[in-house]
């Protein structure tokens, strides 16, 4: 078990998300930074989709009740095992009774806001409708369908102490950076109503910084910037949407749908942040500013291939290290 000693609000159990239940109105949920979750699992030789803890508000403390191999990925939040500092993006072993503390993220390396605590064998909550991710709106999945709180005991598997330790990987924030004018940038494919916006709205979308307001969470990021205006008002029929869709309500301030987004909506869509860049958004802190970069289909697929290549390389390195260790 892992005992939660102190939890900021909104820490949840997540895997890579729930597919196959959209026809029930059930959105995908899943890690806001899927790359950090998958990479943490790779370090522990788990399946990439194993469930971990997503921790958006720090500090956060847990106690391991048995020997446990773990990795902290995502934001660099100066992890400590009891008093000793341990490296993020690195596989470590904790003894029974040891306490892991995560502090407020440092912006010294790169700006990020969510940490992932990955465990060898994964967090062993039941799979509901094909996923262990917490469905907050539906109150199922994860641990009892809710955010974690003090005193929670998270189940782990029999194999939680068995993975190899003593190695790590370079975080994607450093390996795959994307910035414009010093701000986090994300690539966008135009969506159905793009052409229905005014030329000055297009200009603003691509050239202005967009602030992530305090009304932003796992459901969506409400942005502040210049007003985006359609050429004439639009009322659309409700239709399927996905994480990354940039809706523009009639007020003119865009909302990016995130992992807990509804699987359908009706506000006009000016574009969609490509899947390959959703992790960057997931790590962009409230109050920070981002830039949008126009891309085309081929570039979007190339970007997706680049993130997969990064994960494949990480897995190859981990396997290489672990097999070498076995020979010795």
């Amino acid at each position: 078990m892992i005992e939660v000693l102190s939890a900021g609000a909104l820490a949840t159990v997540q895997d890579l998300g729930r597919t196959g239940a959209l026809n029930l109105g059930v959105g995908t949920s899943g890690a806001m930074d899927p790359l950090a979750l998958a990479a943490g699992n790779i370090l522990l030789r788990n399946e990439e989709n194993a469930a971990a803890l997503e921790i958006p508000l720090l500090p956060f403390r847990v106690r391991f009740t048995r020997p446990t191999v773990f990795a902290v990925t995502g934001a660099d939040c100066a992890p400590r095992l009891d008093e000793a500092p341990v490296l993020p993006w690195w596989a470590h072993r904790a003894d029974a009774g040891q306490v892991l503390s995560l502090a407020v993220p440092s912006a010294a390396t790169w700006r990020a806001c969510r940490a992932y605590l990955c465990i060898a064998g994964g967090i062993d909550v039941p799979s509901v409708l094909g996923s262990r991710s917490t469905q907050l709106r539906g109150a199922f999945g994860g641990l009892e369908g809710r955010p974690l709180r003090e005193g929670d005991l998270l189940p782990v598997t029999e194999t939680c102490g068995r993975a190899k330790t003593g190695f790590g990987i370079t975080p994607p924030g450093l390996a795959l950076p994307l910035q414009v004018d010093g701000l986090t940038a994300v690539r966008v494919l135009p969506a159905a109503e793009y052409d229905s916006f005014t030329p000055s709205s297009h200009e603003a979308l691509w050239s202005e910084p967009w602030k992530i307001t305090s009304q932003s969470d796992r459901y969506g990021y409400r942005l502040a910037g210049p007003e985006l205006r359609p050429q004439r008002p639009m009322e659309l029929r409700s239709h399927g949407i996905v994480p990354g869709v940039i809706q523009v309500p009639h007020g003119g301030q865009p909302i990016i749908q995130m992992r807990d987004a509804q699987p359908s909506g009706g506000y006009p869509k000016i574009g969609t942040v490509i899947e390959a860049d959703l992790w960057r958004l997931g790590q962009a802190p409230i109050g920070s500013r981002i830039r949008f970069v126009l891309c085309n289909w081929d570039e979007a697929l190339d970007a997706l291939a680049a993130t997969r290549r990064w994960l494949t390389n990480a897995r190859r390195l981990v396997e290489l290290y672990c097999n070498l260790g076995a020979v010795r």
Binding site: G25, Q253, I255, Q262
Partner: peptide, 28 residues
């Protein structure tokens, strides 16, 4: 259709005399 959130039903057949635009800013 089902959508929006678990179990939600999109309904057809509303009389267009009571059609009203979605809110300028969504309610939280």
């Amino acid at each position: 259709a089902l959508g929006s959130h678990p179990g939600y039903c999109y309904l057809g057949g509303m009389d267009q005399r009571i059609a009203t635009p979605r809110r300028k800013v969504p309610v939280l």
